[in-house]
Write a protein that binds this DNA or RNA. Sequence first.
DNA 1: CAAATTTTCCAAAGCGCTTTGGGTTGCGCT
DNA 2: AGCGCAACCCAAAGCGCTTTGGAAAATTTG
Lengths: 340, 340
Amino acid sequence: MNLKELAESLNLSPTTVSRALNGYPEVREETRNRVMAAAKAANYAPNIRARRLATGRAMTIGHVIPLTGRAEMVNPIFADFLIGAGEVYAAEGYDLLLSMVPESETESAFRQMAANASVDGVMVQAPQENDPRIGLLTELGLPFLVHGRTGDAQGYSWLDIANLRAFRRATEFLLDLGHRRIALINGQESFDFARRRRRGFEEALAARDAVALPHLMASDAMTEGFGYLTAGKMLDGPAPPTAFLVSSVILAIGVRRAAGERGLRMGRDISVICHDDELSYLNNDVGGPAFTATRSSIRAAGRRCAEILIKLIGNPDHPPIQELWDVDLTVGRSTGPCPG
Amino acid sequence: MNLKELAESLNLSPTTVSRALNGYPEVREETRNRVMAAAKAANYAPNIRARRLATGRAMTIGHVIPLTGRAEMVNPIFADFLIGAGEVYAAEGYDLLLSMVPESETESAFRQMAANASVDGVMVQAPQENDPRIGLLTELGLPFLVHGRTGDAQGYSWLDIANLRAFRRATEFLLDLGHRRIALINGQESFDFARRRRRGFEEALAARDAVALPHLMASDAMTEGFGYLTAGKMLDGPAPPTAFLVSSVILAIGVRRAAGERGLRMGRDISVICHDDELSYLNNDVGGPAFTATRSSIRAAGRRCAEILIKLIGNPDHPPIQELWDVDLTVGRSTGPCPG
DNA sequence: CAAATTTTCCAAAGCGCTTTGGGTTGCGCT
DNA sequence: AGCGCAACCCAAAGCGCTTTGGAAAATTTG
């Protein structure tokens, strides 16, 4: 059943039926109802491809996930973010086009998307230092929103959390507890968020006339294994840390494992603060907050990012929208005064 | 730049240019090269919507994620599966359309997809007991592949792992170590995979004239928190288990936490076996296998599922393709002889 | 009551591609 | 020469919708 047939069955023109269905004013209310009823009865649904060809709008938003061979690094975050964004897209009638593209091909993927307008806008996640995607998308004129930010954070739209502030605060919290040998286990520092977190860490130390100790800093993909191995090495090495500041719950779980194997009790023998993205399956609050954590829901971020991007798409020459979210510090059972 | 313009610039008809570009044989090799070169020079990309309207093919595969309010339960799995599938789709030129739909609207979402053929096929994940989606999609004539299976597993295509066998084997392994009070912490048993695992567990016990103890069985969404709380309760209760069989690494991490807080050492005081989907950020092998685990890569499953689905789409009246993967049991440090 | 609006509807022209159903052309063959 | 057959190319008809530019009918206005 297509528009034409539906129109014929109603003794109306396709034009009128189309207008009736799409809520245009130049059709009598009575006719509109007749059309609506017939459409429902015939189980009519407009052919989405035809509509898109005719309107030129894709009603689709692209998420491009660069595959790096270690795509895993974004992984745990990415699902929750996606679900958050997807909820909003669904509500607004947008489709979500998900592309896994080898990192070397992301540029051509974006060019492709722009060339045939297969998406109305794209979401950019996990920007790196001076991420080339931002310049490219600007040049292509494709509306986009960055989750995170990089460079001077000027001239484009983004939503980010206050990473630096969060880690400075977390570090101060540990310092106040008397810790001096604090380890930082960070995400890959090619990512902007990781750099900011590190700066926050260093600034807080510097403000107390302390410095970050090179042997107590590590950064890599945020896997449980990396947290485990790194914490283990640090704990077994000379001048082991009394506290850890880590960039994700996943890492923290690895740290906990390493500590546990060495008979160290979190919150007593060793302190751990992590950043908690509030991943749904790693709820930190069950039975009272386990980890002391800076926290910010990645799913909520996904939702908000989707809203902003949709607004941007509807209004392409809107000035850049930039939103910085502050993060809470929740005190859990994983921190305590520096022993000894 | 569109086809017509490109054709004009080449003094060829759109027909020929289209054929040249799409590899049809009825065009001279020399002309084809000329066209190809011009297309590249002009940075021409065919309008995807026009092509789709003309061919009637969507070149898109739908993944519909039902939002249940606790969508989180599929979460950790779903990202890796998606990445695996996405890799294959990208390679084969398919788009991945991701829909988050409130569970109550999944039926209408599928009907919609079928009505306007906005996707060529759909992937069904995490089937429940007698999942209505299977009947619906069959009725709609939309090609689909189920990751998992349910009911009599007849008459439709699926890929699944041998859940029952895996959990029987794992249980036997624990029995052989002398354990008798074995706890099962399972996923939600409305899901087929969880039922099968439970049956495997029960069968293994029955074969040794033992029975599953009701107070040592629990099932719910597979979060770290659920594993933690449940294991804690069991360990604190009367007749505590000496071993745990759990349905995911995430749960197992919760169990580990509960054990750790009670001063119990895994592999010595308490044994834990889990099923490991080989999530990329939870690699169990770092520093030697941590958990003894039945394992099967969810990402590989995603890849294979995508391949099968694409095959099905290309050949709609192919008889059902069904693939059952056996799973390995990797012995790690989390299991040991029953103490005492 | 005629004229000027307003309301309601329609014909037809796209959107940019694929594909059917031929035409030409050039070659080998008799 | 003349024929048949490939090889190569094209015109035109869709695909199913939206939208422009009216026209006809209904309503208001002077």
